[in-house]
Nucleic acid binder design. Structure first.
Lengths: 182, 182
DNA sequence: TAGTGTAGAGAACGCCCGTTCTCCATTTCC
DNA sequence: GGAAATGGAGAACGGGCGTTCTCTACACTA
């Protein structure tokens, strides 16, 4: 049953690009080529499809980031180099999790949960990179803010995306060096 | 004609709390006590009401922030003290502009515009606070990222809101001192 | 008092959406 | 070959939304 994969693939692109509420189940059917009946066999409701979209996005986004960072020596700066590349992608439209939370957070508890988990995973990863600091938790929280903040700027003002990534990277470097000297 | 004010007041609370698409024009009518006919006399479409909501929010949010900062010596740290208080408000639900952008940015050019203007005003204000730095534009961009990033964390994980504001404030202090020494 | 205009309440309209159901063609098994 | 199951296409259903229209009640003028 590779229908689920085709559905998730189509749904992911539509949800991320247009926003969840702007995409109907019939749009997903048309884009995936999977019949509506099968769609509801694979995902019993739109909410289930949205949660699956976010979980898949979490896996891919995190492994892209952690893979890139690992290939670049596990430095904090690599995170922001990766961000700069992400921001430059054609279909970049901000953080899919923040967007989904803003749209559905008031309505759907499962969506809230998966977004929280994603941000926690990101924080955990940043914490491993910050392990050498005097207060790794504090530094991780600060790095997380820089990542999310730069992402907001890149979404709202795409012409500043690169500058935002580099400014955040420079800030991260300064914080890391300050935090490793005590 | 104070109808517009009552409409905006009701619409603002509903839009911010539940998200724009989750609020119908009839909800606004019921919450404001203004008839639907008059609603459409004051605001010819839902989009016009949304833009007015965002513009009013921009004015109030910015003047609350700048007022607080002015009362506290115009320091960068005051920005993050203000953030900490904002995050603790009962009805806090993240940045209304980022949420609106995620929801409507793909659809509505006027919404994109007003959100961009708001973030630019915030950046401009931060730049005035960063005037003493070697590179005030860079520092302002970094402070903006810290503000938006802490706001994202406070929305997604309310139990971390205070910690996020303080971590961002500490990062800002470190960046300011580093940027004023060359 | 008769007539004119105004405003509000809410019905109506057209459309879209999530979900389910119907119908028909095709396949599968005895 | 016939019967039963499967799967797809799309209609149907119930509800909601943005927007407009109708009807009624009241205020004001001559």
């Amino acid at each position: 049953m590779e229908h689920a994969e085709r559905l998730l693939s189509a749904a992911s692109e539509l949800f991320y690009r247009r926003g969840v509420r702007a995409v109907g189940m019939d749009d997903v059917r048309a884009a995936s080529g999977v019949s509506l009946k099968r769609l509801y066999q694979c995902f019993p409701s739109k909410e289930a499809l949205v949660v699956a979209y976010l979980e898949r996005r979490d896996e891919r986004w995190m492994s892209s980031l952690t893979g890139y960072v690992a290939e670049h020596g596990g430095s904090v700066e690599a995170v922001f180099a990766w961000l700069e590349r992400w921001f430059a992608e054609d279909d970049f439209r901000g953080c899919g999790f923040v967007n989904a939370y803003g749209e559905l957070g008031a309505t759907s508890e499962p969506v809230r949960e998966v977004v929280r988990r994603h941000k926690q995973r990101l924080r955990d990863h940043l914490r491993t990179l910050a392990a050498g600091a005097d207060d790794p938790d504090l530094l991780a929280e600060q790095l997380l803010a820089l990542v999310d903040g730069a992402t907001v700027t890149a979404m709202v003002a795409p012409e500043r995306a690169t500058a935002a990534a580099r400014a955040a990277g420079a800030a991260a470097r300064a914080l890391v060096t300050a935090a490793c000297r005590g």
